[in-house]
């Protein structure tokens, strides 16, 4: 069972708690979670940190996690912080359904 979740435009410290809850719930509910970052317009370290944590949770619970469709803002942040190789980024042109 897999599911996709699309992040909102704004991913900052203001949304961090909510984001963590949303992603944790989604991860619990399915074996394979895809996170769509195409809409992300603003992202800060806290959001990056939540994704890092989600990745470690997924590994711990032996579930699959993929980050897809990185927006320019998300990619810029991950690159700057040197996080690209620490996140399960899947670069294919994945068409996604709800």
């Amino acid at each position: 069972m897999s599911s996709t979740i699309k992040l909102d435009e704004e991913c900052t410290i203001y949304q961090a708690a909510q984001l963590r809850q949303q992603l944790a719930d989604a991860l619990m509910a399915s074996d394979s979670l895809t996170v769509d970052l195409s809409a992300v317009g603003e992202m800060d370290s806290s959001a990056a940190q939540v994704l890092l944590w989600l990745h470690s949770e997924a590994t711990r619970l032996q579930k699959t996690l993929a980050l897809v469709q990185l927006s320019a803002a998300a990619r810029e942040l991950f690159t700057m912080l040197g996080l690209l190789i620490y996140l399960p980024i899947v670069e294919e042109e994945a068409g996604h359904e709800s």
Partner: peptide
Amino acid sequence: EFLVVQPVLCRLPQAERFDPESCYLRFEL
């Protein structure tokens, strides 16, 4: 100019102990 950035992520706690508003990041660069 950044030459290399190495994040150190081991301080990130597991499961419930993770507080999304705390910062666990360390960088060596």
